[in-house]
Structures are given as C-alpha cells and as structure tokens.
C-alpha cells in the first residue's frame, strides 16, 4: 500500500479517502479484514493516533465495523458501499464540472471530449 499524502489536508481525512477509493475499486471487498491501527500506521508511515482517528470516523460512518476484540472489517452493508462509490463519482464529476465551467466550455463539447478521451484511453 503506497499512498502519497499532501500536507494541507488532515491526514486522517486522506486515509478515509484512500479507503473509500479502495472500496469503490473493489480492492477492499465487503467483510474483508483491514490492517490494525499500528500496521497501517507503519505501512503508511504516519502517526498511529491519526489512523486511530480515521478508523473511528469510518466506524461512525459505517464503512468499517468491529466485533469484540476481533480485527476491524470492511462493512458488508451493500447500501453503504454503493453510496461510497456514488460519492466518489459525484465528487469527481463536480470537480470536473467546476474546472470546465471556469473556462466556459459548452456542455456538449465537453461531453464529446470526455467520451473521446475516456474511450481513447481505454484502448
């Protein structure tokens, strides 16, 4: 696991985002065990307290769950997982729309370009 963190966003927020991306991509499967707080801190070279905070937040959002003393797992709740994916898509689209709009590109032109680019890159 290699994540490049920026220095301006809270690191815990960046950790959560990283988890959401992994879930959306399907790399983290429903019910999959996740690394312990210390393991993750060590892998990402960040403060264990930060990981703790990220896990707490994700637990509250229902992204992960913990039963007793067992290691935490990715949620099995389809609804939650689906909403993660949607959230990321909407966020990406919003960023895109924002930047396209700021240089006054008409919608149709933008969409065509998106289509070409998207399919072109796929090949």
């Amino acid at each position: 696991m290699d994540v490049k963190f920026n220095n301006r966003d809270p690191v815990y927020v960046q950790v959560i985002r990283h988890f959401k991306e992994q879930i959306a991509k399907g790399i983290f499967e429903p019910g999959q065990e996740i690394p312990s707080r210390r393991e993750l801190a060590n892998q990402l070279k960040i403060n264990p307290n930060t990981v703790q905070r990220a896990y707490k937040e994700m637990e509250e959002q229902g992204l992960i769950f913990t039963e007793g003393n067992l290691p935490s797992r990715i949620s099995k709740d389809e609804l939650v997982l689906k909403s993660v994916r949607e959230e990321l898509i909407i966020e990406a689209v919003e960023t895109f729309v924002y930047s396209v709009r700021s240089i006054n590109v008409p919608l149709q032109e933008a969409l065509n370009l998106v289509k070409d680019k998207y399919e072109g890159e796929k090949q």
């Binding site: 220095n7 301006r8 966003d9 809270p10």
Partner: peptide, 13 residues
C-alpha cells in the same frame, strides 16, 4: 491535524 482541518494549512504553511 487541527490546523489542517480548520485552516487547511500544512505545518510549513
């Protein structure tokens, strides 16, 4: 983490 969260600043900032 507080200054990153509340002010969007890095330590260097």
């Amino acid at each position: 983490e507080e200054v990153r969260e509340n002010e969007g600043k890095s330590v260097i900032d």
